[in-house]
Design a protein around this nucleic acid. Structure first.
Length: 960
RNA sequence: AGGACUAUAGCUCAGUUGGUUAGAGCGCUACCUUGACAUGGUAGAGGUCGGCAGUUCGAAUCUGCCUAGUCCUACCA
């Protein structure tokens, strides 16, 4: 074995072996356990969040696989409608071709081509992360089977009356030319203006103050072209006489009514609001209440129309309203139109004033442009009814969120859920299975033939399929069951659904988790007709952030590719990677500077296991995960520690040639034979059981950080720091018996072998690599650690006596080391040690552990004094009541020792005062549980005794 | 506006049902190439647990208020 841990030498080949041998597929035996990977966006590449996610899921999957479950982890991607279409359009754009030049079919073919080329990125990343997904069951939302499922779901929902089509205001993206759902709109704080406009009253009416106009305030003056009313509060005394009268809308000269509606806030502005039902969601509601016409003045690019389009609130065309618009603005972009309209108001002396105003601007999360409420025909899922059982499933615990607090977030959204706009004006996606006849009547069916036969439509009727496609999240919502073969009732569906746990970030609880729950409960039923949940647990993890705590995003240029932490990357390559293909190239310089500052040396290579272990150790209950390179380096070092511990074990249990290759095994008890376990052996075996307990508990509670910590502490602080050291005096003792040697060798290999299995779910590669060589020495056989049983606690092997004895031993050794350290005695120097005030237990422990003491504390001699012996002047450490003495002669400076004692005495004085104070408080003694009081009494007694001893010692030395 | 979450060592974070001398890793200081490991070892320094009140014999832990930060939802035109 190499002297240091070299991850690259072992990772790739093990993954290939595992995959080739089919270890990732379900075993077909045992209780089913399944996880569906949250499908990454096929256009993209995995970022740190995915890396984190994968580390968690793979740990769970490997853990359950080792526990003998019939384990399925199914991978796949979603087609990411808008994002993918954008990427391919941009590529075509670079060649001067638009998708319209190509036509729909050819364009979709281009997307498939592109997907073939780039789809390998993600699968390669998943492999490099060590994820043991069943590649044979990889799925893609646009695959035939899943497309079937989408169609089926749409048709059934429509039949159930849960999907409808209607003309509504939607969030329109004027750049991408599609509707998007509420969730895809980001409301961003921006600075804007509030324009106060004068709207002249018709028919000579005047306000209470005698003005001939009303003042409305607006952040979007250009929409005034579509105003269909002005509203005041019904109880607003200022405007009582004007309700029912009319306004002459400036520039347009349309007469519009003054209505009363309690939507209006009297305190805000002038208490008068312009109502534009076709261009504002609130105004739309007001319009509905007052039966106002919907006057659309914008086209799909959000430019001003030459003539308005007018509808009634029920969506029918309105022919009563004059559609004339001023010619000056026709074809102008909304922002240009805004400027000119404001100028026109000013010129007409109708501009009262302009105030600065902070507002939230709705922007498309993909395009970044301002979203326009726009009147269109769209398909909707009525969510209220679907939400009911989805809420219940969480209320009654069929689905549990971990941590639980996320249930509140879920409930609050579900209880106020809005209908979901599922149609998108895109080409890439599942085309809506709806057809129209020439009269515009709509028919829904699985295909045109079904529609014709169902509605008795002869060939003379021409049918045209809806051009639109479905929201990607619609297909993702079916993910847990569509990927298992639904609508067929496949064996896979019966076996692996409900899945066990969904692992995801809280940012997509609404987008995905909630919708999956609604859809699954609706479509998937048990034999008794009760609905099936998509998953029993939702493990919600935090978002991975950079070291500054900022969210990682491409536009900020602070993203990290998990592979770059695994393999390492030079500074230049990292800068290049972060600044390539930017949506906003002007940020490149800033990103470059920032990158050079944060990673002046680039990024070192840490290997997959260290990365995964780091992710696990960060998986506590918080919402943010600040990724800390220092922490990962620490865990890389941990891998090295394991590596070297294994080297040591192998050196002492194998027969090795000059190069360290194995040429035979020493007797580790693999073939039986008498075995004598030392105290240290019994101790480490006991500690191993406790570690197994902790890890088991932590996995059960999704506390991967605690599992990682328990493993780390056991392996480093107990096995390496103490046990390996304690094994040396036995292994190197020429007088050791065969049974003793066999016992220690057996414990060395068995504990290591078990620890490897314990750690394997989190660190698959290093554990496999070492296990291959350790297993035979531990009497284990098998092709891979992956399918070995996960360690089970054996409570009988917990040995409290051994633990107490080793604690004593550690106390003595640390005490001596402390004197050495503080007194500057060279570690190389052999020193004598004496024990005074020795109890029977101490006597036994000294006798049993003399050789350990000598070796680990590097002692010249170990002497237990009897009551009659006179102790030489010494530096002293207390272990319980026993005094550990290091004679001062020639070694220790008087003043240094006094200072050291004084420090100890100060500590003890404080302790005595603190505990004594507590015990002097009668209400404490009266009210606290007896055990607690007894504990405090013992504490006080110990501290007082220790203080006395040390004080006496101090006086003795001081007197010299 | 409503709600959630967070605040513990210089940094990144643990801390189970209230009872610890409040822990870990990194960083820092001193010493050490001892036959697994310098990606290491030994010893050590470092914390008024955001602030203020309260409940309690006892609070990092429970309650209220405040401050700071993060986020979500809704929104005043």
């Amino acid at each position: 074995m190499d002297k240091t841990y070299q991850p690259h030498a072992i990772e790739r080949s093990w993954y290939q072996t595992w995959e080739k041998k089919g270890y990732f597929a379900p075993s077909g035996e045992g209780t089913p356990y399944s996880i569906m990977i949250p499908p990454p966006n096929v256009t993209g590449s995995l970022h740190m969040g995915h890396g984190f996610n994968n580390a968690i899921m793979d740990s769970l999957i490997r853990y359950h696989r080792m526990k003998g479950h019939n384990t399925l982890w199914q991978p796949g991607c979603d087609h990411a409608g808008i994002a993918t279409q954008m990427v391919v359009e941009r590529q075509l754009g670079a060649q001067g071709v638009s998708r319209h030049d190509l036509g729909r079919d050819a364009f979709i073919e281009k997307i498939w081509e592109w997907k073939e080329q780039s789809g390998g990125t993600i699968t390669n990343q998943i492999r490099r992360l060590g994820s043991s997904v069943d590649w044979s069951r990889e799925r893609f939302t646009m695959d035939e089977g899943l497309s079937e499922a989408v169609k089926e779901a749409f048709v059934r929902l429509h039949e159930d009356g849960l999907i409808y089509r209607g003309k509504r205001l939607v969030n329109w993206d004027p750049k991408l030319h599609t509707a998007i759902s509420d969730l895809e709109v980001e409301n961003i704080d921006e600075k804007g203006f509030l324009w106060h406009l004068r709207y002249p009253l018709a028919d000579g009416a005047t306000t209470a103050d005698g003005d001939t106009y009303l003042i409305v305030a607006t952040t979007r003056p250009e929409t005034m072209l579509g105003d269909s009313a002005v509203a005041v509060h019904p109880e607003d005394e200022r405007y009582q006489n004007l309700i029912g009268k009319e306004i002459i809308l400036p520039l347009v000269n349309r007469r519009i009514p003054i209505v009363a509606d309690d939507y209006v806030d009297r305190e805000f502005g002038t208490g008068v609001v312009k109502i534009t039902p076709a261009h504002d969601f609130n105004d739309y509601e007001v319009g509905k209440r007052h039966n106002l016409p919907l006057i659309n003045v914008l086209d799909r690019d959000a430019a001003i129309l030459a003539t308005a389009q007018v509808f009634n609130v029920d969506g029918t065309a309105n022919n009563d309203v004059d559609t004339t618009l001023p010619e000056a603005y026709a074809g102008l972009d909304r922002f240009e139109a805004r400027k000119q309209i404001v100028a026109a108001f000013e010129a007409a002396n109708l501009l009262e004033k302009i105030d600065d105003h902070a507002l939230k601007t709705p922007r498309g999360d993909r395009s970044g442009v301002v979203i326009e409420p726009w009147l269109t025909d769209q398909w909707y899922v009525s969510a209220k009814e679907l939400a009911k059982p989805a809420i219940e499933a969480v209320e009654n615990g069929d689905i549990q969120f971990v941590p639980k607090q996320y249930e509140n977030m879920y409930f609050s959204w579900m209880r106020d859920i809005q209908d979901w706009c599922i149609s998108r004006q895109l080409w890439w996606g599942h085309r809506i299975p709806a057809w129209y006849d020439d009269a515009g009547k709509v028919y829904v069916g699985r295909d045109e033939a079904e529609v014709r036969s169902k509605h008795n439509l002869g060939d003379e009727v021409t049918l045209r399929q809806d051009d639109d496609v479905l929201d990607t999240w619609f297909s993702s919502a079916l993910w847990t069951f569509s990927t298992l073969g639904w609508p067929q009732n496949t064996d896979a569906l019966k076996t692996f659904h409900s899945t066990d746990v969904l692992v995801t970030g809280f940012d997509i609880i609404f987008f995905w988790v909630a919708r999956m729950i609604m859809m699954t409960l609706h479509f998937i039923k048990n034999d008794d007709g009760t609905p099936q949940v998509p998953f029993k647990y939702v493990y919600v993890h935090g978002l991975v952030r950079d070291s500054q705590g900022h969210k990682m995003s491409k536009s900020k240029g602070n993203v990290l590719d998990p592979l770059d932490l695994i393999d390492g990357i030079g500074l230049e390559a990292l800068v290049e990677k972060r600044t390539a293909n930017m949506m906003q190239p002007q940020l490149a310089a800033k990103i470059e500077k920032q990158t050079r500052k944060e990673f002046p040396e680039g990024i070192a290579s840490y290997g997959t296991d260290a990365l995964r272990f780091t992710f696990c150790s960060l998986a506590s209950t918080g919402r943010d995960i600040k990724f800390d390179m220092g922490r990962m380096e620490g865990y890389r070092n941990f891998c090295n520690k394991i590596w070297n511990a294994a080297r040591y074990v192998l050196m002492n249990t194998e027969q090795q040639d000059e190069q360290g290759s194995c040429i035979g095994a020493l007797d580790c008890g693999q073939n039986g034979g008498e075995v004598e376990l030392s105290l240290a052996d019994r101790w480490i075996i006991s500690r191993l059981q406790r570690t197994e307990q902790q890890v088991e508990k932590a996995f059960g509670e999704f506390r991967f950080d605690l599992a990682a910590q328990a493993l780390f502490e056991f392996i480093w602080n107990e096995y390496c720091d103490w046990y390996l050291e304690l094994s040396k005096p036995v292994l190197w003792d020429e007088n050791a018996t065969e049974a003793q040697l066999r016992g220690t060798r057996r414990t060395l290999v068995r504990v290591l072998e078990t620890a490897l299995r314990l750690a394997h779910p989190m660190m698959p590669y290093i554990t496999e690599e070492i296990w291959q060589r350790i297993a035979p020495l531990a009497g284990k056989s098998g092709d891979t650690i992956m399918t070995q049983p996960y360690p089970l606690v054996n409570a009988e092997r917990i040995d409290a006596q051994a633990e107490a004895d080793i604690e004593w031993l550690k106390g003595v050794i640390v005490g001596i080391r402390n004197i050495r350290g503080e007194m500057n005695i060279s570690p190389a120097k052999h020193i004598p040690v004496l024990f005074e005030h020795v109890s029977d237990d101490d006597q036994r422990r000294i006798a049993e552990n003399a050789r350990f003491l000598r070796k680990l504390a590097n002692l010249e001699s170990v002497t237990a004094l009897t009551a009659d012996d006179e102790a030489p002047l010494s530096a002293v450490q207390l272990v319980g009541e026993m005094k550990v003495l290091v004679p001062m002669a020639g070694l220790i400076d008087k003043d240094a020792e006094l200072a050291r004692l004084q420090k100890e005495l100060d500590k003890l004085t404080k302790e005595v005062a603190r505990v004594g104070g507590k015990l002097n408080n009668p209400s404490f003694v009266d009210k606290a549980p007896e055990a607690v009081v007894a504990k405090e009494r013992a504490k006080l007694e110990d501290a007082e005794k220790a203080k006395q001893e040390l004080q006496a010692q101090y006086d003795k030395i001081a007197a010299l």
